[in-house]
Design a protein around this nucleic acid. Structure first.
Lengths: 188, 188
DNA sequence: TTAAAACTACCTACCGTATGGTAGGTTGTC
DNA sequence: GACAACCTACCATACGGTAGGTAGTTTTAA
């Protein structure tokens, strides 16, 4: 992958996370990268193509990081959770930015089919990963909770995504920290 | 308010909740109402104007219903919560539909300023209303929880909004029921 | 070794379509 | 005669995407 292509993905991702896929245009990307619109299309021949490339890169990044933690025998459930929460905490510093797939989920009906399946996979990956953490954590007596891991993991994931969504229009950045605190309490 | 104007609001709301504000056009509304585009604009002279009217109507509907419950001495905290959760449960029957203000929050940066303040007020209203329920419920020994009502109410609201967001791309409608069950457990 | 061929990254110019919105007219009703 | 609701026709702008060309680099083969 070429340097310009990477820059296009970076700018495109930032634009989707702040403004949304529909509201983002090839022209916007071109301006910020410093090239002309057709040059962007030269690298990614359609908006759907660009969108899919973006989500796949996002998924891959997460997947490799999460797997590294999960397979590391020195890390326990709390390490894994702390790692998992850290990107969400970072969003507290950028009021208008949300998770890429949260942003896309909000406009999923306006998305090309190829992108929808990618978004869906991202969601499922995350919920499964969290479920595994909860399951193992309880087996090892590190975590303590009553609900089934399946339900609880879905709820935690939804809560984090929802908090990103809501903090955007309330300008209340403390919610992220608070919510993670409450979740942490629920697992003790 | 004229019959056609109401129809325009109805169709517009449905379109925002399923496709989003940016992706919705005057033309879409006109087609579904059965009139021509300029006639829609005759009733609502700009998209921002239509958007504001929509949110205000949505807020008013909720506010009056919620206040009716809150001020009714025959209703306790669990009645209020059940009532509060009911619209969310209805969303389980419409896979692509989310709360109007959740939808708008997802594209808040692409929204005209007048609409942003309305969305913000909606969020604040809901969080405050929930907070009051939690507060009174605990005072009357109906509800039982450890967190502060402010924090917990924000978390519950975010969780519900997040679940709407996520169910959209996962096609897993059972999440809404599950999440509400977990929340209910947290308050016992 | 070197020149033709192929490829890459980028450009200008353009096209069809859709958008929000305007101008101005028609019809029917208080 | 004023007004409301609706219409046709239009406008400027922005969009995703295409056509076709240029300059520079890389590959290939005599």
């Amino acid at each position: 992958m070429n340097e310009t292509a990477v820059k296009i993905l970076d700018v495109g991702q930032e634009l989707i996370q702040t403004r949304g896929f529909t509201a983002m245009s090839f022209q916007d990307i071109a301006s910020q990268v410093g090239i002309k619109k057709p040059s962007v299309i030269h690298h990614f021949p359609s908006k759907a193509n660009l969108g899919v490339a973006l989500i796949q890169r996002y998924r891959d990044t997460f997947a490799s990081q999460l797997d590294a933690i999960r397979t590391n025998p020195d890390k326990n459930a709390w390490d894994a959770l702390e790692f998992y929460f850290s990107p969400y905490l970072q969003f507290a510093a950028t009021p208008e930015k949300v998770c890429l797939c949260g942003a896309l989920s909000g406009e999923v009906t306006a998305l090309p089919e190829e992108m929808r399946v990618e978004v869906k996979h991202f969601m499922e990956d995350h919920q499964k990963w969290l479920e595994t953490i909860l399951n193992n954590g309880r087996k090892n007596d590190e975590l303590n909770f009553n609900e089934t891991p399946a339900r609880l993991s879905r709820m935690i994931f939804n809560t984090l995504q929802g908090t990103l969504l809501v903090k955007r229009s309330t300008d209340d950045m403390s919610q992220l920290k608070d919510v993670i605190k409450v979740i942490t309490h629920m697992l003790k």
